[in-house]
Design a protein around this nucleic acid. Structure first.
Lengths: 228, 228, 228, 228
DNA sequence: TATGAATGAGCCTTCATTCAT
DNA sequence: AATGAATGAAGGCTCATTCAT
């Protein structure tokens, strides 16, 4: 247990001396973890893909878990600047514009071809079967956007808003989007004539937006009627 | 008559001589596989939970894989009679009734407390990271209901229906429902004040139904307007 | 440990109620043991080949070892009558005739097509890597013929005979014969143009006889010369 | 550089960096394989004898099979220099000298006390029940010496030589030699008063040589007589 | 800084065997 | 007389990890 103050466990901050090997390991790990999950992934495989020695993993990241944690962190690096919550729209725009922008931004992030494919997949996997990492992810990354969406939908619902209804509508919107990710294998089998991917992400987003706006409008009207 | 082809590998049909041990193994396996996935699950754990000898797994199912396959099959046993696609509604009912019934039936199946919890979870896992089993599941079980939903939504869209739009609406409906399953861990963190479960499955279903009906109506109207 | 006085362990004598299953097991066991050896052979395989239940082995023969022992015993059943030591020749014939007959008889037994192939192979295996069975085999079956051969060769050597020389000559004769059995795989590779088998067993025997007679005659003469 | 192809699988050439553990494993493996055969041998036993961890076998040789293959290869390391085919005799010596030298060399190799005992035994086992290794052994090691012996015996037979007769004589010579190896267990029981071993290897060789020379001379003469 | 060597724990599987029937 | 069910022991192998260098 001699040299245990090396990079391993460093906070996000000191990006400084990122060895090349360390970087390659992180990328390889991301891919493998995303593909087959934490337990199924083997350090041998990761090391091989990274053209690194197996022992390097323990050297840089203390253990497999450390490597995983670091890989997850990597996903959110620069996320806020690369993927703004409501791209191209200011906070004082009308709520339907903001919702549309939010959905487009969300879908774009899911499908962005320039982003390493494993980012979305690993995240999706965390949602599906969480590790300790999820708490941090939710608190630091997801909740802020969740609150933002909450505001948008509150505005859209107007007088009809209740805590419960807002929650449900949020779920409906997010559920539609994530479906294209988490159920992609089923969709590929059910709708083979229509492969989803970066090329039609905007189209999908547009549908989700229209679908949701129509729905929320109807809900708002329904409440109005009831109120009136 | 060498017993190298014991019950293992029997077609769905002959339910007859289910040993007690065999049954216990299947249940334990279902739970474990659903919780941690195929690879991470260990036969030792499964056998222990079933109070059976490890070798019994090989005896009855030849393989860990064979055990998995059989467990997946078990999920759909009697499904059609226990969970009708549109419970309490006939095929000639108005399409909004049928959609509402479909969604309620779907959510009820997802949350039914009498159903072993692992059924839904294992299925959800198959969707997320498929094994060879998924092809059969989609073909035999999912597609029929998919076609049914397709018909309902076609009817609802009326003149606005196009293949593409129908597909997207199906995805929106199913996506909303499955969200409560596949993103349950995130929801538990984001909305801890509102735990989802069997007790409010009907409520959730009602929301999804109203949301979707409102959305589809709007889409139908929109097309009308465009057409007109 | 209830019914343990059944056939298992019966002396050679009571051949009476040889069940069909028991017989089939013995034959299958002989084949398998001869092919792959005691340890490598599996009771499952034997039982399957015999179309019998695995448990039948333990029922009839107490255990795997018992089955093996019984199978080895089977080899020598009726051997003396089916394979006389010096076929067609009486004990008072001239020694060269007797040696020739001995060798022909030996080779014929090794290659006899009517004899289950596993007899010779299992025996050969016992010589190569003995089990407890070998002691009995040597004492009851091999030694008598060894003594007979000893007499023949003593006669042939005449004045040249010494214990040591007789022994060596016996080894030379037997070694030549067994070579065709124990080194058959090498011979098949070194001399593929000349496959050995029942069809040329007599030819091989004739060579061994001539080779040995020539050699022994030379040795006898050599001693003479030295003596004179 | 992932170390998934460690030393294991290296061609005969690079003898360089033989770890100590690797060497110990090879020796232990040789002994165990020779004693009980491939299948019956257990890696645990081998590792224990080598005072190594079981996993080391996988590390160095990938497989139990890989370990076996490498052990067999080891047998022939330096063979040509340590055991010349006709020691002390040049190719132009008279054929009877060359045959005598060949036999002495062969028997010496079989019994050499300085050679690990398992070399000969493992080889003998390969002849008796071949693995894939035998083909290579025959082609690379055995056949050359076979051809050499073929030439010697051809010379000895003179005008009497035919392909068939040469083959048979080769078999007679080799059969006599190998007998002391492959039938050693039977010999120990039949001739307990005369244990064979390194101490009398030369004596045995001398007998085989005289026996064979006498036989071949007789065969050569016999043909002469017939020819004349 | 970085790695080849080595390890202990645990995995899935197969084996011969037993037991209740 | 015979067998399906079940078992404990052991087998080969892989895993993440450590340690000396």
């Amino acid at each position: 247990m001699a040299p245990l103050t090396p990079p391993g466990g460093t906070p996000l901050a000191n990006v400084e001396h990122e060895t090349d090997t360390r970087q390659r390991l992180l990328n390889a790990a991301g891919e493998v973890f995303a593909e087959v999950g934490f337990h199924t992934a083997t350090t041998r495989d990761i090391a091989r893909r990274a053209s690194a020695n197996i022992a390097a993993i323990n050297y840089y990241f203390r253990d497999k878990q450390g490597l995983y944690t670091e890989a997850v962190r990597l996903i959110y690096r620069d996320e806020d600047t690369k993927y703004p919550a409501t791209p191209g729209v200011t906070d004082d725009a009308p709520p339907d514009c903001r919702l549309r922008a939010f959905i487009h931004g969300f879908m774009h992030k899911l499908f962005d071809a320039e982003r390493p494919a494993w980012h979305g997949r690993l995240l999706s996997r965390e949602l599906f079967e969480p590790t300790e990492a999820l708490d941090a992810i939710v608190a630091e990354r997801i909740r802020p956007r969740y609150q933002l969406l909450r505001g948008i939908i509150s505005d859209l619902l107007g007088a009809a808003r209740t805590d419960a209804l807002v929650r449900l509508c949020i779920n409906s919107v997010i559920g539609q989007c994530l479906h294209y990710h988490h159920a992609r294998h089923m969709l590929a089998r059910l709708q083979p004539e229509c492969p989803y991917g970066p090329h039609n992400a905007a189209e999908l987003a547009e549908h989700v937006a229209r679908f949701s706006l129509g729905a929320i409008a109807a809900l708002a009207r329904g409440a109005e009627g009831r109120t009136a």
